[in-house]
């Protein structure tokens, strides 16, 4: 499944925050979204998952999604893991995963086994309330919960925030494995070096606009990243 976004703009209330965004995520691709704080990265993901007003075009294969509701976007296979995890703290790990399910019980069990192979720690914590997990474990639960929805496109907003360096590298390996399974990944990550290492494409955002896009080596070598981050600060 291929996500093709063109001329997308979105914002909050009457103010537009991102303008004229064009991007593409194909099966198995990892597309990194880079930019300084406040550049509009999270806003783009919110627009794609249908929870803020948006205009332009969001095509999923041949289907236009710009007017589709948040719920139907999830059903169509575009799933967003929000910034700051957002697990259900009062529900157990197992319940967090089950809450995603509407289909058959057999399928649920298959999916559960699959995500537990990716994140074995979840099995150990199965009956514990999610609110009692460590930050890293909650992050894994958030990703696992999204995978239970069988996404074709997975959007991750700073999944490694607050993780220890070793765990962060482990998580990135897992993201790579998820993509290798044929899922397109749209990844926001503060650590540009790390995300450029696993990305197949990268977009650099500044003040709500795409200022550069291309293969990671093109972007990384050009000095344009530093410029975008500095420009914003200055």
């Amino acid at each position: 499944m291929k996500l093709v976004v063109s001329a997308l703009s979105a914002g909050y209330g009457n103010s537009r925050v991102v303008h004229d965004i064009t991007l593409m995520v194909g099966p198995g691709e990892i597309v990194a979204l880079l930019g300084a704080n406040g550049a509009g990265k999270t806003t783009i993901l919110r627009a794609l998952s249908g929870i803020i007003p948006r205009a332009g075009s969001i095509r999923l294969d041949d289907r236009e999604m710009i007017d589709v509701s948040a719920r139907d976007i999830v059903r169509a296979g575009v799933v967003h893991v929000p910034q700051g995890r957002g697990t259900f703290g009062g529900l157990t790990v197992g319940e967090n995963l089950s809450a995603t399910q509407t289909g058959s019980v057999v399928r649920e069990a298959e999916l559960r086994d699959k995500v537990c192979r990716l994140f074995p720690i979840l099995r150990e914590r199965w009956t514990q309330p999610a609110g009692e997990l460590s930050g890293g474990e909650q992050q894994m639960l958030a990703v696992a919960r999204a995978l239970m929805l069988e996404p074709r496109i997975l959007m991750l907003d700073e999944p490694s925030l607050g993780l220890a360096p070793l765990i962060r590298i482990e998580l990135f390996e897992t993201i790579r494995a998820i993509a290798a399974d044929g899922i397109g990944v749209l990844l926001i990550e503060q650590n540009a070096d790390l995300s450029l290492k696993i990305a197949s494409q990268a977009l650099l955002l500044s003040h709500g606009r795409v200022v550069a896009s291309g293969r990671p080596d093109e972007i990384a070598g050009s000095g344009i990243i530093e410029e975008a981050y500095l420009n914003h600060a200055g």
């Binding site: 998952s49 929870i51 948040a70 719920r71 999830v74 059903r75 799933v79 967003h80 893991v81 929000p82 957002g86 697990t87 259900f88 703290g89 009062g90 529900l91 319940e95 967090n96 089950s98 809450a99 995603t100 509407t102 919960r145 999204a146 929805l149």
Partner: peptide, 18 residues
């Protein structure tokens, strides 16, 4: 279960299609 999820964290429930 979905009702509990929605009351636990309504913003987050939206992201799993609730």
């Amino acid at each position: 279960l979905r009702m509990r999820a929605a009351s636990d964290n309504p913003e987050s429930a939206v992201y799993i299609g609730i």
